[in-house]
């Protein structure tokens, strides 16, 4: 990967970190609010079904988490076990997008 590409990965990781800082906070506050008075599937679905704002929030959250985690793992693998190169980069990108895809699919399941 070119140094410009590596710089872009770094920028993506920092920007997703900023998004995650806010998203995790919203997520935790929502959990604390949701479990008050007992947690039920009907209550969760009542909040999320058909609600575009929640779906958009969790889609962005999942995409950020997937990319952020994969870029971090790429760095850790390079530094600790020397796993570097084009094949590894493609694999990490795939892992990041698949992770994000699972998250977005779950959010869509609550929306649709």
């Amino acid at each position: 990967m070119s140094t410009r590409g590596q710089t872009h990965l770094w920028v993506v990781q920092r920007v997703t970190a900023m998004i995650l800082a806010v998203a995790v906070l919203v997520h935790l506050v929502t959990i604390i609010g949701a479990v008050r008075g007992g947690l039920s599937a009907a209550e969760i679905l009542g909040r999320t079904r058909g609600n575009g704002a929640w779906f958009a929030f969790y889609a962005v959250f999942a995409l950020s988490a997937g990319l952020h985690g994969a870029i971090g793992l790429r760095n850790m693998a390079a530094e600790t076990i020397g796993l570097r190169g084009r094949g590894a980069d493609i694999a990490w990108l795939a892992i990041g997008l698949v992770t994000a895809g699972f998250g977005i699919r779950a959010a869509y399941g609550l929306f649709a």
């Binding site: 070119s2 140094t3 410009r4 590596q6 710089t7 760095n75 390079a78």
Partner: peptide, 12 residues
């Protein structure tokens, strides 16, 4: 800045 960017540069 190009020379110092990336995995072998400041970003590591």
């Amino acid at each position: 800045l190009d020379a110092v960017a990336g995995d072998a540069g400041c970003h590591s």
